Amino acid sequence: MWLYAAALVGLCYLLRWYREKQVVSHLRDKYVFITGCDSGFGHLLARQLDLRGLRVLAACLTEKGAQQLRAQTSDRLETVILDVTKTESISAATQWVKERVGDRGLWGLVNNAGISIPTAPNEWLTKHDFMKILDVNLLGLLEVTLSLLSLVRKARGRVVNVSSVVGRVSLLGGGYCISKYGVEAFSDSLRRELSYFGVKVALIEPGFFKTNVTSPEKISRAIQEAWDRVSPEVKDIYGEKFLASGFPGTLIGILELSEGKNQGRLGGTAVKRLPSAQGVIPALWDRAPHQALLL
Rank of each mutant, 00 (worst) to 15 (best):
Ala113Glu: 01
Ala113Gln: 05
Gly114Tyr: 05
Gly114Val: 00
Gly114Lys: 05
Gly114His: 10
Ile115Ser: 07
Ser116Asp: 12
Ser116Tyr: 07
Ser116Met: 14
Ser116Gln: 10
Ser116Phe: 08
Ile117Thr: 12
Pro118Gln: 11
Pro118Cys: 08
Thr119Cys: 10
Thr119Trp: 02
Ala120Tyr: 05
Ala120Gln: 03
Ala120Gly: 02
Ala120Pro: 08
Ala120Ser: 10
Ala120Phe: 02
Pro121Gly: 07
Pro121Tyr: 12
Pro121Lys: 02
Pro121Asp: 08
Asn122Phe: 14
Asn122Tyr: 11
Asn122Trp: 14
Asn122Arg: 15
Asn122Gln: 15
Asn122Lys: 14
Asn122Cys: 10
Asn122Gly: 14
Glu123Gly: 07
Glu123Pro: 04
Trp124Phe: 14
Trp124Ile: 13
Trp124Val: 00
Leu125Pro: 08
Leu125Arg: 07
Leu125Thr: 11
Leu125Ile: 12
Thr126Ser: 14
Thr126Asp: 05
Thr126Ala: 05
Lys127Val: 10
Lys127His: 12
His128Val: 08
His128Ile: 14
His128Arg: 15
His128Met: 15
Asp129Thr: 04
Asp129Val: 10
Asp129Gly: 07
Asp129Arg: 04
Asp129Asn: 08
Asp129Leu: 12
Phe130Ala: 02
Phe130Ser: 04
Phe130Lys: 00
Met131Gly: 07
Met131Ile: 11
Met131Tyr: 09
Met131Lys: 15
Met131Ser: 15
Met131Thr: 13
Lys132Ala: 15
Lys132Tyr: 03
Lys132Cys: 13
Lys132Phe: 03
Lys132Trp: 09
Lys132Leu: 15
Lys132Gln: 09
Leu134Arg: 13
Leu134Tyr: 06
Leu134Lys: 09
Leu134Pro: 10
Asp135Pro: 09
Val136Thr: 13
Val136Glu: 12
Val136Met: 04
Val136Leu: 10
Val136Gly: 07
Val136His: 05
Asn137Ile: 06
Asn137Trp: 05
Asn137Val: 02
Asn137Tyr: 08
Asn137Asp: 13
Asn137Ser: 07
Leu138Tyr: 06
Leu138Gly: 01
Leu138Glu: 08
Leu138Ser: 00
Leu138Asp: 02
Leu138Met: 04
Leu138Thr: 13
Leu139Trp: 11
Leu139Met: 15
Leu139Arg: 01
Gly140Lys: 03
Gly140Cys: 04
Gly140Phe: 01
Gly140Met: 03
Leu141Arg: 03
Leu141Lys: 00
Leu141Ala: 11
Leu141Val: 08
Leu141Met: 15
Leu142Tyr: 15
Leu142Pro: 02
Leu142Glu: 12
Leu142His: 07
Leu142Arg: 10
Leu142Asn: 09
Leu142Phe: 14
Leu142Met: 11
Glu143Pro: 07
Glu143Gly: 10
Glu143Gln: 14
Glu143Thr: 12
Glu143Val: 05
Val144Lys: 00
Val144Trp: 04
Val144Pro: 01
Val144Leu: 11
Val144Asn: 11
Thr145Pro: 11
Thr145Trp: 05
Leu146Ser: 11
Ser147Pro: 08
Ser147Lys: 01
Ser147Cys: 13
Ser147Ala: 14
